[in-house]
Write a protein that binds this DNA or RNA. Structure first.
Lengths: 215, 215
DNA sequence: TAGATTGTTAATCGATTAACAATC
DNA sequence: TAGATTGTTAATCGATTAACAATC
């Protein structure tokens, strides 16, 4: 796999990588040393063809007549996903959802770690979320520069999210994990991934209605 | 639009409906009475063709030479998404994330409302999340039947999620909104929508790496 | 009526699946 | 070597975009 070959992978493929990673992690901890695309296709409920095509976007990870080495494939997909690197994060908006994310991520995901939180509410400034201190919002830009923060996690209302994104665009932040119900406009150098909980619930609602109406 | 015509809408289309709904809601509250597919395409950054095709899956909502009536289109998409119906929900797993979701949803989304929460931790049983009481887990199945609960929101660890899904399959629950990092197996009559936060963050991580390596 | 814009068919594009030669 | 299974090309399928006739 060379850098050049990785050009132009579709988001459909990228979107499937975390799921492969999860299943391979499970197989690995079950002590499964090798797996064929056929076996994996049965477990994951996708076609073996798709599995082989997906992996081949990044070069050959398997061996004819043998299959894939579970540990090796797991590690390689981890590298593709950038999970071998440390990602330092800040929380912007220390409300319920934000606090839950900090507690959740700092326990489970070693590669991703919250270093600080920011809010506009002064009553939070002497508090912490677990070990993570809460600072006033206006210290956010300098904190990002000084502490080499990679990812800003946005858990603020819509209007605030747009405003703060403007501020973030002037910092060396690399990415925004957006939980606000709005599409953010950012320079190309900043990656955005949005979690639109309302949209997710609406899809569920659609499927309920559709099933009830017998379609 | 007849029931028959709605057969076989692709998930790609369904996935775009909440975004249309959001933009139309914004336009409506800005006082915009009509909109053409071309104008909307510019605002939403998709093709006008796709907009017209998407809407036409559900019948004609527009008028030649005029465009679409913003309010009417908004209401119709709302109906397609089942947002005109009340959805009663329970929380299963009253941890950080679960509590955040209850506080978040009960404030913002009138159609979706949490009626109760369930947990295995006895120290929570006399507490509430906002107005929502927390009950012992073993009362969950009877509560669902007696209170006609539509949606169970799963914010428990992986192993518990699988076990609880087995219990839910024996109740008249219509849908599961799953936040556990696992793919749930359910009977066809139960709809599942998963929010895999780890997967979302991994996609972001991939895009950071890819951008840094100049691809 | 003339202009605008939908609804809808046709063309294109991309993603998925099938097939099979290469090779371990 | 023979069997198994990948890597990869070809075929199919579905989704997106373009084009334009219908019609408000």
């Amino acid at each position: 796999m060379t850098a050049v070959e990785e050009r132009g992978i579709s988001q459909a493929v990228i979107g499937r990588l975390p799921r492969y990673y999860r299943y391979l992690g499970d197989l690995k901890s079950e002590g499964v040393e090798r797996i064929s695309s056929q076996e994996l296709s049965r477990i994951m409920n996708v076609t073996a063809s798709q599995i082989r095509q997906d992996f081949n976007n990044f070069g050959g990870f398997g061996q004819q007549g043998y299959g894939y080495n579970t540990s090796y494939l797991y590690e390689e997909i981890g590298k593709i996903l950038g999970l071998n690197k440390q990602h330092d994060m800040i929380l912007i908006g220390a409300g319920n959802l934000g606090q839950a994310l900090v507690n959740y991520m700092n326990l489970k995901n070693r590669g991703f770690s919250f270093k600080g939180a920011f809010d506009v509410n002064p009553s939070l400034f002497d508090k912490r979320i677990g070990n993570v201190p809460i600072y006033p919002m206006d210290r956010m830009p300098s904190y990002i520069s000084e502490n080499h923060i990679d990812i800003a996690v946005l858990t603020v209302p819509k209007a605030a999210a747009i405003e703060i994104t403007g501020v973030l665009a002037k910092t060396p932040i690399k990415a925004i994990w957006n939980f606000a119900h709005v599409d953010l406009k950012v320079p190309d150098r900043i990656q955005v991934e949005s979690v639109h909980l309302q949209d997710s619930l609406m899809k569920l609602s659609y499927n309920i209605r559709r099933h009830e109406e017998g379609k």
